[in-house]
């Protein structure tokens, strides 16, 4: 059995941010805090320009720097190997914010502790999918055993892209089916 993580089909994503809102709704997040986020990038110059989106959240890395760096053990591996966070142990030191190469953990205002995607472990324990997965209009998000996801969606899935930090840093449990233009080394983030 492989690690558990998200599979993102970039080729199907329309960047609508429904996953972001479903995540906000499920986690009841205030403005400024996103446990799942979408960014749009473009490549090339008119009229040969192109674009792609990425929807990302915690990658539940196998060698998570947030877990390693956490001084209290609040950031830890759950029984299923996903990266979980114990709000009672968290002291809000924000070292995980400095450590995560994907800029995933965020300080929750008012609570003054860290929050991040827990892969909807409560829903999953109850036999459901993470909220973002079931929300996706283009069915481009899936969560599960990466080996099985690879079997189902193709061996050519990647966890390295020019826009992503090197997977060598933390061994992210992430699979992406990239668009061809996402392999181009030159890109610009586009605010939409």
């Amino acid at each position: 059995m492989g690690a558990l993580g998200f599979y993102f089909d970039m080729q199907a994503c329309i960047g609508c941010r429904t996953c972001q809102i479903a995540c906000k709704d499920k986690n009841n997040l205030p403005i400024g805090v996103l446990f799942r986020e979408i960014k749009k990038f473009e490549t090339g110059v008119f009229p040969k320009s192109n674009s792609y989106n990425i929807s990302y959240s915690c990658n539940h890395c196998e060698e998570a720097k947030c877990v390693k760096g956490c001084p209290t053990g609040a950031m830890h591996y759950g029984a299923d190997g996903t990266v979980q966070h114990d709000p009672d142990l968290c002291i809000g030191c924000q070292y995980c914010i400095m450590n995560c190469p994907y800029s995933v953990p965020q300080l929750l205002p008012e609570r003054n502790i860290i929050g991040k995607c827990d892969s909807c472990i409560d829903l999953r324990n109850a036999g459901q999918n993470p909220a973002c997965v079931d929300a996706c209009l283009m069915r481009c998000l899936h969560f599960g055993d990466l080996d099985e996801l690879r079997k189902e969606y193709g061996e050519e899935l990647v966890n390295a892209l020019p826009i992503l930090p090197s997977p060598d840093i933390t061994k992210p449990s992430l699979l992406i089916s990239p668009k061809t233009c996402a392999l181009e080394s030159s890109f610009t983030e586009l605010e939409v």
Binding site: N27, N28, L29, P87, L108, E110, R111, G115, A126
Partner: peptide, 14 residues
Amino acid sequence: GSNSLNLLNDAKIV
């Protein structure tokens, strides 16, 4: 606004 609190995070949705 209604977004100032993050109350439900620890309440288990299930």
